[in-house]
Amino acid sequence: MTTRNILIIGILVVIGLAVMYTLTASDNEEVYVENIQKERERQFKYLKFNIDSPLTADQKRDLNKLDYYSIDPKYKVRARMVPVEDRKMVELPMTDGTVEKYLKHSFAEFELDGQKHMLLLLQAAKESDKRNFFLAFADATSGIDTYGGGRYINLRQDGKNSITIDFNLAYNPYCAYNPDFACPLPPKENIMEIALEAGEKDYKKE
């Protein structure tokens, strides 16, 4: 991944975290849905118009919308953070065959539809804020309704041993729009058998 790619991701992380603060602070479902919609609109405008967008000029011209599942508050879950016993750096494979280093930090344990789940939380090697985490996952929708290479969520620890995961905020890696970008693939711990029908769907050029 180039320095430019890292810079773009860093900018999105900062913006995304600000949105997350707003979303987690509100218990009003109408306000919650409105905030999700605003974030989706911001994401579209960034890809379509921003000078730092990963899209080429031709790709920006062809981008008319992003496709999402309907917003469902049940996909916003509270997870318990369980530290990884042997916390170490691991190399995640990238879509271009290279690797990117991340710290295996914690497992997020949560319930969804009465079932218990566990996902691995990662931290980028150069992450300065130790409350920020990166979640890359794939599920039963991957390669069908959603991007085959999985989806991402940027997370911020909001409790001593807990974190909020909102799958309505799941977004596509840049390589879903521009194959020239290299994107990390989800670790094996985050390949889920259930269908997470929340967040962004696969990008299909019209």
Score class of each variant (00 low, 15 high):
Thr3Ile: 06
Thr3Gln: 06
Arg4Val: 08
Asn5Thr: 05
Asn5Trp: 09
Ile6Ala: 14
Leu7Cys: 10
Val13Met: 11
Leu17Thr: 01
Tyr21Met: 09
Thr22Pro: 00
Ala25Met: 06
Glu30Phe: 03
Tyr32Ile: 02
Glu34Leu: 15
Glu34Arg: 14
Asn35His: 10
Asn35Asp: 08
Glu41Thr: 11
Gln43Met: 12
Phe49Tyr: 10
Asp52Gln: 13
Thr56Glu: 03
Arg61Trp: 04
Asn64Pro: 06
Lys65Arg: 07
Tyr75Ser: 01
Val77Phe: 04
Arg80Gln: 11
Val82Glu: 14
Val82Trp: 05
Pro83Trp: 07
Glu85Asp: 14
Asp86Phe: 15
Arg87Ile: 09
Met89Gln: 13
Met89Glu: 15
Val90Trp: 04
Glu91Gly: 10
Thr98Ile: 02
Glu100Thr: 05
Tyr102His: 12
His105Trp: 10
Ser106Asn: 06
Phe107Asp: 05
Phe107Ala: 05
Phe107Ile: 08
Phe107His: 13
Ala108His: 00
Glu109Gly: 00
Glu109Asn: 03
Phe110Trp: 01
Asp113Ile: 03
Lys116Tyr: 02
Leu120Pro: 01
Ala124Trp: 14
Ala125Ser: 14
Asp129Gln: 09
Asp129Trp: 02
Ser142Asn: 02
Ile144Gln: 15
Asp145Ala: 04
Tyr147Val: 03
Asn154Gly: 15
Asn161Asp: 15
Phe167Gln: 13
Phe167Ile: 03
Leu169Glu: 02
Leu169Ile: 10
Cys175Asn: 08
Asn178His: 07
Pro184Val: 08
Pro186Glu: 04
Lys188Asp: 12
Leu196Cys: 01
Glu197Arg: 10
Gly199Asp: 01
Asp202Thr: 11
